[in-house]
Computed example of a mutant assay.
Amino acid sequence: MKFNKQSKPIPQLLKTFIFCVCLSTLSLLQAGDTTNWVSDNNGSWFDDNNWVEGFVPSDGIDVAFGIVNPNNNRDQVDIDNAGNGVILPNSEIRFERKITFSDASANGDPLLADDGLAFQNMRINGAGGAAVVFNVPVTADTVSSNRHGGIFNREINIKNILAVSQHQDRWQINASAIAPISYLLIDESRGPDGDTLDGAFRVNSDLEFNRLEHVWGRMRIAESIFVEVATYLYTDHTKQLENNNINPIFINASAILRVADFIIYDKENDVITRQEKGSYGSLDNEDVDFQVDFIIGEGQLIVHDDDVLFADGFDTPQI
């Protein structure tokens, strides 16, 4: 039996169609493009049907979750991937709605999750008075927010946290960090009236920071928590009567905030001073060396002069 080696030519119209489909697919996958989660969807990250563009994002493709609608229900996103998680180290993920990330294989228990999220940058703006909730480990170079922030219920590996927030009312770090956090900025940008502050940056787990800049807003350290900071730059507004006590440091009972280099910027007089070694506490704390008006709670801030060298090589920086 002989086969005819000649094949029929592909019609020009079909060639054009195939070319356009291929070109369209390639354009969707270009680095820097954005893939959008289908709003009000609950389900697996790895289901193409949950993405507006019809495909699961790959590395280099940015990811977006919705447009703000305070009345929408919280989207539940499952990243169960047999322990491989979602790893997009060259992508940015953005949130503009209420989202919870979990690992279905953990049956709702964050401590059992073996899948995590890894992105270059995360912009976590919640909605409707609710934060973005992470019941899985999170890795990122920079995590920022200007609304509500994030709740982290599993370990984090984040270099920079920028809590520059109109409603800084939901930030919570409830788990440990794999490495010291290089930089934390707390600056709630809601105007000069202290009464407009509606929340705090809450630390509910032992953490280390290389540099912490506390400009405007509240810092809350939970009971019995130990926080180590190489350099803490604190902006003191307490001498401005109209802005009294708008950014206190809350240190609850038995908690310790240990700082190598504690620097206070007096906003009213435009003066920077380094604080001397010793223990600092609230005005009614008789167990400390220095009673100050910007600390609230029964815990202590301890300034020491020991050398600080964190495990990842961050040493005490100069202002």
Score class of each variant (00 low, 15 high):
Glu53Tyr: 06
Thr25Arg: 08
Arg202Phe: 11
Phe294Thr: 08
Phe46Lys: 03
Asp109His: 06
Pro192Leu: 11
Gly83Cys: 04
Val259Lys: 05
His237Trp: 15
Asn72Arg: 15
Ser282Ala: 12
Glu223Cys: 03
Asn245Arg: 07
Asn71Leu: 11
Leu309Arg: 14
Cys22Glu: 12
Arg123Asp: 09
Gly116Glu: 05
Asn69Trp: 06
Ser105Gly: 10
Val303Cys: 02
Pro137Thr: 06
Lys2Ala: 12
Ile264Gln: 13
Asp59Gly: 06
Gly297Trp: 07
Asp114Pro: 00
Thr238Ala: 08
Gly217Asn: 05
Ser44Ala: 08
Leu88Trp: 01
Trp216Gln: 14
Asp289His: 04
Asp195Ile: 11
Val63Lys: 03
Gly66His: 01
Gly85Asn: 03
Phe65Met: 01
Arg202Val: 11
Asn160Cys: 11
Asp305Tyr: 04
Pro9Ser: 11
Gln291Tyr: 03
Arg258Gln: 13
Val164Leu: 10
Val68His: 12
Asp40Lys: 13
Asp78Lys: 03
Arg97Ser: 12
Asn204Trp: 09
Gly297Asn: 06
Glu53Lys: 07
Gly60Cys: 08
Asn72Leu: 10
Asp47Pro: 03
Pro248Arg: 09
Phe226Pro: 00
Asn49Ser: 15
Gly194Arg: 13
Ser102Lys: 10
Asp115Gly: 06
Pro70Tyr: 07
Pro11Gln: 13
Glu188Trp: 03
Thr35Ser: 12
Val164Ala: 11
Val86Glu: 01
Leu185Asn: 09
Met219Gln: 07
Val292Asp: 09
His167Pro: 00
Ala260Met: 04
Arg274Cys: 03
Leu23Phe: 14
Ala82Pro: 00
Ile158Asn: 08
Leu88Ile: 02
Asp62Gly: 08
Val21Phe: 09
Val288Thr: 10
Gln172His: 12
Ile161Trp: 06
Thr34Gly: 01
Arg190Met: 03
Ile18Glu: 11
Ile173Gln: 07
Thr196Lys: 15
Gln120Val: 09
Pro70Phe: 03
Asp114Phe: 04
Phe201Tyr: 14
Ile67Glu: 11
Val288Gln: 06
Trp37Asp: 00
Asp62Asn: 15
Gly129Lys: 02
Ile151Cys: 02
Val143Leu: 15
Phe95Ala: 00
Asn125Val: 00
Val68Arg: 13
Leu23Arg: 02
Lys267Cys: 06
Arg147Val: 00
Ile61Arg: 02
His214Asn: 06
Ile221Thr: 05
Asp261Pro: 05
Cys20Asp: 12
Phe201Gly: 00
Pro317Phe: 04
Ala222Cys: 03
Gly150Thr: 02
Phe134Ala: 09
Ser44His: 05
Asn73Gln: 13
